[in-house]
């Protein structure tokens, strides 16, 4: 985009903005428009040469330059019809629409209704071109968690842990909600473990206030750090048939190679050994090789235990062998 196009696009919003805020400072306008104050000054010096056709003094946009340079304060007189900004472009509307939907996925019902109101007001022409579905669990859980964060309250969660596949009842001091990879998460300080933990919201079956206040644990860790710590952990290499190729798309992989025989080799971070064993059990014979082999052995043990349990119940009939 040429500097003139960027400048004119900005001026179309800057002129009505400054007009609507008499006495606003150069620095404040610079902050709102994310440009240096010197750029705002340049923009103003363009604006004062513009106005209605004819070019009589009263037809031009006028700014008190003395006040601008002495006090940094802007007073703008605008005889033109530029009293409202340019409407949102399709790209602006579509990007904003998706961003608002992402925020909506984290908040309680009341705030979600406010967001629906914004979307309705903006009457986004791109609305039907974009769609977003995030797994953010139960609205009632989000409401309780959101309120507990604001009020610094301790919660008891009922949580279906993904890493061990076990349901637990951790007592936590909730701190932040974030979205990554299509799902919403809670960052909370686990009182029982004495450390920060990340909980996937759609695995939180219930959240109950304990009536206790949350402790002081400092700032929660950055979600980016959490994503990186997963990426940096132990990895496993799986050889997948075409049927299981979704694994390569669903989970973050550190490498992915399609071999000459059509099988796909992927390397992925092991969230926990129990998690990988469950993945192997669900994939069955669509995974052809596992490296290191200890994970395949653990999956084999679990499968044999399950078969023995069926046997013990007299339910293992059928095509045994």
């Amino acid at each position: 985009m040429s500097t003139s196009i960027a400048q004119v696009a900005r001026l179309l919003t800057e002129i009505p903005y400054i007009e609507a805020h008499p006495g606003i400072t150069l620095a404040e306008v610079a902050r709102v428009f994310a440009v240096p104050p010197a750029q705002v000054r340049k923009d103003v010096l363009v604006a004062i040469y513009c106005g209605l056709p004819g070019g009589y003094p009263g037809d031009l946009i006028d700014v008190d330059l003395d006040l601008m340079d002495d006090e940094g304060a802007l007073y703008l007189t605008n005889p033109t019809t530029l009293d409202r900004p340019l409407r949102l472009t399709v790209a602006e509307a579509a990007s904003l629409h998706l961003a608002l939907l992402a925020v909506r996925s984290l908040v309680d019902g009341g705030t979600a209704a406010t967001i629906d109101g914004i979307i309705l007001k903006i009457a986004d022409p791109a609305a039907s071109s974009v769609e977003l579905r995030l797994s953010a669990g139960d609205e009632a859980v989000r409401r309780v968690v959101g309120r507990a964060i604001v009020d610094a309250e301790r919660l008891e969660l009922v949580y279906d842990g993904a890493s061990r596949g076990v349901t637990t009842r951790p007592r936590v001091d909730p701190a932040a909600l974030f979205v990554r990879q299509g799902a919403a998460y809670l960052t909370a300080f686990s009182v029982d473990r004495g450390d920060w933990r990340t909980y996937r919201l759609d695995r939180v079956v219930a959240a109950r206030p304990t009536g206790e206040s949350a402790g002081a644990h400092g700032a929660p860790p950055d979600p980016e750090g959490w994503a990186k710590s997963l990426a940096g952990s132990v990895t496993a290499r799986l050889t997948l048939t075409d049927e299981a190729r979704w694994v390569a798309e669903y989970y973050p992989t550190s490498s992915q190679v399609t071999r000459a025989d059509g099988l796909t080799e992927v390397e992925l971070p092991v969230i926990s050994p129990a998690w990988l064993v469950r993945l192997l059990l669900s994939l069955g014979d669509t995974v052809r090789a596992v490296e290191p082999p200890a994970y395949a052995e653990a999956a084999r043990d679990r499968a044999r235990q399950a078969l023995a349990a069926y046997e013990a119940l007299g339910l293992a009939r059928g095509n045994a062998g």
């Binding site: 709102v32 409202r84 579509a94 990007s95 904003l96 925020v103 974030f178 990554r180």
Partner: peptide, 29 residues
């Protein structure tokens, strides 16, 4: 694009502090 949209919308409404919403950090990629 969202920044530009937000700047335009600043002319039709002033935000209050986002302090109370700082615990929400949705990200899309």
């Amino acid at each position: 694009d969202v920044d530009r949209a937000m700047t335009k919308l600043r002319t039709v409404g002033e935000p209050v502090s986002t302090e109370g919403l700082r615990f929400l950090t949705p990200r899309l990629a």
